[in-house]
Simulated scan of single mutants.
Amino acid sequence: MFKSVAPTDIANNRAAHNQEQPSPVLGKGNNSEVNGYRQSSPIVAGGNMNDVNSQQRVLMKEQRLEDIKNQCSELISELDSDDDPEAIVKKHISQLKKYNELKDIALGLVTMIADQRKLRTTDILEEMKVELADD
């Protein structure tokens, strides 16, 4: 029922298919027949336009894969750093303190604007499209 195929059969078939052969035009348009197969797109350098598009997509995917590999290696190097855990915690706490100070200053300014305009602070925040999220 099915014929077994050896790897050499596939290579020989590809080599035979890639050889340039005259392809008669059948009817109107760009339809042609090569090795008994009907093709609707023009032949370009031993293949058709779909092969060229496929090759371009493969190259783009390979480039994207390389970019992702580089990002992964950068992240791994950041995680593998020999920083002292206590130093990381201290740095994080100091950043949180700085954030809270800036947030308090911003809220104080919004309150001053609300007092000057005789509005509620929430009205000013809505006008500025600021969302107060308690995460």
Rank of each mutant, 00 (worst) to 15 (best):
S81E: 05
E74C: 01
A87D: 15
K98S: 09
S54C: 08
P22T: 14
A11D: 07
S54M: 05
D80L: 15
S40E: 07
I76H: 05
N70I: 09
D83I: 11
V25H: 06
G108V: 02
L107H: 02
L75G: 03
L75R: 03
E20Q: 12
N18V: 04
V25A: 10
R38L: 14
N50E: 04
Y99V: 02
A106V: 04
A11I: 12
L102C: 09
S73C: 01
N13L: 06
G27S: 09
N53C: 12
K28Y: 05
S94R: 07
I76S: 06
R14T: 11
L65W: 03
N48G: 02
K97H: 02
D51G: 05
V52Y: 09
Q55P: 05
I76Y: 03
N100S: 06
S81R: 15
N31Q: 04
D104Y: 07
L96M: 14
Q21Y: 05
Q39R: 11
K69Y: 09
G47T: 06
S23E: 14
G27N: 12
G27P: 04
A45M: 12
A87C: 07
C72V: 13
V25Y: 13
N12C: 00
Q63D: 08
N18Q: 14
N12I: 07
N53T: 09
D80A: 14
K90D: 15
E86Q: 14
